[in-house]
Amino acid sequence: MIPNPWLNGLVVGGAVLAVLMTLGALASWWERKFSARLQGRVGTTILGPWGILQPFADAAKMIQKEDLIPRDADRVLFYIAPLFPVTLVLGLAAVIPFAGYWADGVWHGAAMVADVDVGVLFVLALSGLMVFPLWMAGWASNNKYSLLAAMRAVAQGVSYEIPMVLAALVPVIASGKLSVTGVIAWQAEHGWIVARLPVVGFLAFVLFYLTSLAEANRIPFDIPEAESELVGGVITEYTGIKSGLFILSEYLHTLVASAVATGMFLGGGHVPGLAGLPIWAQVVISLAAMWFKTLALFVSIYWIRWSWYRFRSDQLMELCWRYLVPGGLGLVASTAVAVSLGWV
């Protein structure tokens, strides 16, 4: 952390932004290679080694494409909607410490844009806002596929936000902290949430992971963009870089959601055996550990995406309201009882 907050936002924020954008671009290439491997194909091969330069060619192509606005669309809303999704999902990363170190027996966050007291709330609030650009795009397009997709996306987004909030409450109750750094510091001291709260911690992690998939519209929860019935979902009418921004936001969303889940449940950058090392070594190791855990979750998301089916719209809502919401309440209640009894 740089003492001057403006400079810190600019330098660390710029670095976080650069890393996330690079990884987001590489993710689109990696997914093509990975899905090809799963299906016995080769994937991209032409640009650069293993076709790794493909995303940059894609970006160049998208920027050059003609920018069409349908005659019947709501022009203003249609135009500004693609500005928001990438901004919002990148914004989620503002409160995540990507590294950390022990000093005076306390775990400190490092490589983070801001140590906000209410970081967990900030993350939940921003990811709740994600339904707005989708609805703006779907409504403004004046296209039936887009509108249907937007309605499904909003219904799914708001529904799965409830179990997500309930799952996020488990580490908050255990640590008594609302900042992501505070939650990670508690885990560094007492053990990661998945292991420290037997069963309950693991179930809360699974619930958070599932709801993150739903918020990012990934299989099995990608009915809002089911291409077999809704063409392109809310981006049906978008061309060029505008559809590109929506697609990029989904890669970034899964990436950032993996980082959030790592921080809340898997101890963030903490690994055993760091105490006593020089601070620079701790920061380097914890940075590597944070990205290792995050990318492991990220890989699992795409593994599921390419090997599973999607739920029907009604099954999706039924799963959320009938099982996940009461399940989440049960997890919150058991954590509260365990904390009050002094078990954790």
Binding site: P5, W6, V16, P82, F84, V86, T87, L90, A94, V113
Partner: peptide
């Protein structure tokens, strides 16, 4: 004061989206 870096960072993120719009407006056919 702890929100200042968040504000700066969010502005950077928004500027990125705007920059892509501008690039597309200048370069698109």
């Amino acid at each position: 004061a702890q929100w200042i870096p968040v504000l700066v960072y969010l502005s950077l993120c928004a500027a990125l989206s705007v920059a892509m719009f501008v690039a597309s407006a200048l370069l698109s056919v």
